[in-house]
Amino acid sequence: MAEMEVKQSGGKKGPGVKKSKKLSTRIDLTPMVDLGFLLITFFIFTTTVTQATAMPLNMPKDTKDPNLQNKVKESGSLTLMMGKDNLIYYYFGNDPATMQSTNFKDVRKIILDKKKSTPVDDLYLILKPDKDATYKNVVDMLDEMTIDDISRYAMVDPTADEYNKIQQTEKAAGIQ
C-alpha cells in the first residue's frame, strides 16, 4: 500500500522538546494512473494489426486450340489497359482506335455503366496490363472486379498495336 498508518503520538512532551513534524507518506497516485492509461491508449492506437490477407487468383491453362478459347461478344466487351503513371486506357468492343483514358478513381463508374447496359451473359472484361504497369495496378484492378461483382474477365497481354497506341498517347501527354 502506498500509505502507512502513522501513529499519532499521544501525550505532551516536556517543555523544550520540539514536536517533530509528521510527514504524511500518502502519495496521490492519480497522475500515475493517468500516465498508465495514456500509455496503454497510445500503444493500442499505434499498433497496426498486420495480419496479411490473401487474394485468391486462379489462372486458366494456356491453350492454343481456338475452339477452347473463350468467345467474346463484341457488344459486351470492355478492354481496360493499364499503363504508366496509374492510368487506364479503355475501349468498348473491338476497336482500339476509340481508346480513351481514365484513372483508378473513375474506372468504377465506367465498369458499372457497362455492366448496367449489357446483358449479364455478354459482359466480358479484358484486362491488359502493359510493360509499364505496376503490380499494384494489377491487384487494384482485380480487386475492382471483386468490388463491382464482375464474374467474367480475363487478363492478357496487350497486342503490339495496342501497346504502340498507349505509347503514343503517353508520349503526347508527356508522361515519362
Binding site: 490473401a54 489462372m59 491453362k61 504497369a133 491487384v139 482485380l142
Partner: peptide, 26 residues
C-alpha cells in the same frame, strides 16, 4: 511498384509446372 512483366514471368514459371491457383498476399 514491382513492374507487371516480373509478376507475369513468375506466373509463367508456375504455369509451366501446371499450377494455376495462387494467393496474392495483400
Amino acid at each position: 511498384s514491382t513492374k507487371y512483366p516480373a509478376f507475369g514471368k513468375v506466373i509463367d514459371a508456375f504455369k509451366k509446372n501446371d499450377i494455376y491457383k495462387y494467393n496474392l498476399v495483400t
